[in-house]
Design a protein around this nucleic acid. Structure first.
Lengths: 223, 223
DNA sequence: GTCTATAGGCTGATAGAC
DNA sequence: GTCTATCAGCCTATAGAC
C-alpha cells in the first residue's frame, strides 16, 4: 500500500499503477470479456468505481494497457533495427530482446497481442497501428537486408517474419500455462526453460534461412 | 433450412449441427466469454433455449466443440506418425496435414486450441487430454526418430515441437483477421497465401534442423 | 423438438457522501 | 480521490405452451 508523503492517503498514481498491473494480468489471462471490473478492483485492492474515475471505463483501461505495452515493444525493436551489425546478429538480438521483454519487462505482452489479433484487432487505432508496423518492419527489414546481402536465402520477408514472430508469441504467451498443464497431464518430457528455447529458436531460425550449400533435397508440399 | 422428410419440421440433427457450426465460429473469434447464447442461436437461426435442450448449456457446447475438434486433429496426426517414410517426409506431411485441417476440414481448430491454452486449459479433461498428448507425441516423436537416425541435428524434441506448432497455430489462427487488418493498416507488402506459407515453413524447418555441414558459426544468445 | 415468457444473477457505470 | 449505494441492461437457464 504505497502512500503519499503529505496526504497520508493512497496516491492517485499508486492507485492507477495498481489497477494497470492487476488488469494487465487478468486481461492477458482471461481476455477483455472474461474479466469484470469488480475482479480488477479487488485484485488491485481498490474500489471498482476508481476504474471509471481514472480511465473512463473497462474498455479504455484495456486500450491504454494495449497501447503502452505495444509502444514498449516497438521502442525496443527500433533500437535494434538500424544496427550496423550483420543480419544474423540483428536477428539473434531480436529474439533475445523478445525474450527479455516477454520474461522481465512486459511478461503479458505476447498474450495481449495474440488475443487482440485473434479477436480482429478492433482496437488497432491511429495510436497503436504505428507500433504494429514498427514490429513488422523491424523483423522483415533485417531479413530483407540479409537476402540482399546474400547471407540469407531468398525467403519471403513477410512469411519469415510471421514464422519467427509466431514461434515466439506462441511460446511466451502459453509458457506459464503450459508448465502447469504439462505437469497435470504428466507429459513424458522434462520441461526445458525459456532460456533453452531462446538458444534453440535462434539456432533453428538461422540454420533455416542461412544461405549456403545444403545436403537436403528440395522441399515439397505433399507426400 | 434442412427439413426432415417425415416430420416436415426442422430435424433435431440439423439444429444441432447448425448450432455447432455457428458456435464454433463465434467461439474461435470472440472466445467463450465473448459470445452470448443469444448470438449463437441467432446465427444458427434457431431459438436460444435449444442450446440448453441439446447441449445442456453454453459451456457444455463449448467443451463438445473443443473435444471433437481436437479429436479430429489427433486422428490425422496418428495416421501419419507411424509411417515408414523418412523423418523429413513425415515432418513435411505433418505441416501439409495441419494446413489442410486449418484451411478446409476444421478452419477454427487453431484459434480454439490457442484460446484454450491461453486461458489455462481448464477444460482439458480425461476426454481431451489424450488428444493433446497425441499431437505432442506425433511431432516430437518423429523429430526424436530423425535425431536418432542422424538426419536431424540433436535438437530438443519438445522445443522443436513447440517452435513448429507455434508457427503453424499462430499463422492459421490469425490468418483471416490478419488479411483484413493488413489491408486496413496499409501494410507495405503483398500478402502471401497460406499455400506460400506451407512451402516456406516446410523449407525453413527442414533446413533449420537438418544434420549436415553448415557454413554458419555457432549460435549465441546475446550480442 | 421447438418456441415464448420470465426468473434471477451479474455486469458496467454513475450519483452522491465523505 | 475514494468509497457506498444503486440502477438499468444483459446474461444464462428454465418452466411451460404447443
Amino acid at each position: 500500500m504505497t502512500r503519499c508523503q503529505r496526504t497520508h492517503s493512497r496516491c492517485a498514481v499508486a492507485t492507477k499503477e495498481s489497477l494497470i498491473r492487476s488488469a494487465t494480468e487478468l486481461f492477458a489471462h482471461h481476455g477483455l470479456d472474461g474479466v469484470s471490473v469488480e475482479s480488477i478492483a479487488q485484485k488491485a485492492g481498490v474500489n471498482k468505481a476508481l476504474i471509471n474515475y481514472h480511465f473512463g471505463g473497462k474498455e479504455r483501461l484495456y486500450t491504454e494497457i494495449l497501447r503502452t505495452t505495444l509502444a514498449e515493444a516497438r521502442r525496443r525493436v527500433d533500437e535494434l533495427r538500424d544496427s550496423s551489425r550483420s543480419p544474423e546478429d540483428v536477428l539473434r538480438d531480436f529474439v533475445a530482446a523478445f525474450h527479455n521483454l516477454a520474461t522481465v519487462a512486459r511478461p503479458h505482452f505476447p498474450a495481449l497481442l495474440l488475443r487482440e489479433v485473434l479477436t480482429g484487432g478492433r482496437r488497432f487505432d491511429e495510436e497503436i497501428v504505428p507500433h504494429i508496423l514498427g514490429l513488422f518492419e523491424g523483423v522483415a527489414g533485417v531479413i530483407e537486408r540479409g537476402v540482399r546481402e546474400g547471407v540469407f536465402r531468398p525467403v519471403h520477408p513477410f512469411l519469415a517474419h510471421l514464422g519467427i514472430i509466431g514461434s515466439l508469441v506462441f511460446f511466451y504467451a502459453t509458457e506459464p500455462r503450459r508448465r502447469r498443464i504439462a505437469s497435470e497431464l504428466k507429459l513424458p518430457v522434462v520441461m526445458p526453460t525459456a532460456n533453452d528455447f531462446v538458444a534453440h529458436i535462434q539456432e533453428v531460425i538461422l540454420y533455416g534461412i542461412a544461405a549456403g550449400p545444403r545436403r537436403t533435397e528440395n522441399t515439397q508440399k505433399e507426400s
